[in-house]
């Protein structure tokens, strides 16, 4: 019996998949994980305008948590995150259920609801800032109709600026949640619905007892994606409130940018970025883990 050796070309071919994945993987390793490591390192140094590689322990974190600005940013993120996610899901879900009622112009209405997703947060912020302009915006218009106490100049009120962010962010994302829910509604097994209505369940009961509970995974996805969006929110603040008045509507992402690029506090900036990463990871890692594990294909 002869035992021919593997041809050289075949030997290379055997490694081709790995070779092809390599550039992408190397880039991700370097530009994501390497950079995370670098930022993590810097977050334990006294870096000011330029990176300084002398470790000083957790001092930057201690300083970070003593800063009122950071406290405000975190508190804002909490308020913004909760309200943004809640409203986006409630409105998105409501619109999806309503659009599922054999609406004649469904495609057209869906297009209207979803177009904000094509627009950047900068544009969204610019447009709503103009609408909320205290002297020329919607407030003046509504007051001229006779509703004298109407107030919509939220961006200029330190107590309301965060809610302006929530409103604009919900405006931008509700359509996306609607699209997510609508496609899930449409993929519910029609036989179950038929069986339920033969059993005498009313349409309302069918929705509440059968359809919505079966969409739990979609709720999960929506919550995870929206919270990820909330934590990363940066542009909207820049365009809509500029973080103000003062720093009343600043979010962690803006805090990080401010420290890193404007105040020459790289160490603090890096520490705040690491806190953001930890927050995202706390949400994403369990989610991704369950997603990947649950649908492993052999």
């Amino acid at each position: 019996m002869t035992h021919p050796p593997l041809k050289i070309a075949d030997r290379i071919a055997r490694w081709l998949p790995q070779i092809v994945v390599a550039p992408c993987f190397a880039a991700i390793l370097f530009f994501v994980y390497g950079f995370i490591a670098w930022t993590a390192y810097i977050s334990f140094t006294k870096s000011k305008m330029l990176p300084n590689y002398n470790l000083i322990g957790t001092r930057p974190y201690e300083r970070l948590f003593q800063m009122d600005r950071w406290g405000v940013a975190q508190e804002n993120l909490f308020i913004f995150g909760i309200l943004f996610i809640a409203f986006a899901i409630v409105i998105g879900c409501l619109l999806a259920v309503l659009l599922d009622q054999k609406i004649r112009a469904e495609g057209f209405i869906r297009t209207i609801y979803l177009y904000p997703m094509a627009i950047s947060f900068i544009i969204t912020g610019t447009a709503w800032k103009w609408i909320m302009n205290p002297s020329l915006g919607l407030e003046t218009v509504v007051r001229s109709w006779g509703w004298e106490s109407f107030s919509f100049g939220w961006t200029n009120d330190a107590n309301l600026a965060v809610y302006a962010l929530v409103m604009a962010a919900v405006w931008q994302s509700a359509g996306f949640v609607m699209a997510l829910f609508l496609s899930a509604l449409r993929s519910v097994d029609q036989d179950i619905i038929k069986a339920a209505s033969l059993d005498g369940a009313s349409p309302w009961k069918i929705y509440m007892r059968i359809i919505l509970p079966s969409m739990r995974p979609v709720f999960m996805s929506a919550i995870v994606i929206l919270s990820h969006l909330a934590i990363k929110s940066f542009d909207l603040v820049v365009a809509l409130t500029g973080g103000g008045p003062g720093y009343s509507s600043t979010l962690p992402a803006n805090f990080m940018y401010e420290m890193t690029f404007r105040r020459n506090e790289i160490g603090i900036g890096a520490a705040s970025a690491m806190i953001m990463l930890a927050t995202v990871a706390a949400i994403m890692v369990p989610y991704l883990y369950s997603e990947l594990r649950g649908k492993k294909h052999v």
């Binding site: 019996m1 002869t2 035992h3 021919p4 050796p5 593997l6 075949d10 071919a13």
Partner: peptide
């Protein structure tokens, strides 16, 4: 009579 274990 050809062993093909390693043949492509």
């Amino acid at each position: 009579d050809r062993v093909i274990n390693d043949v492509h």
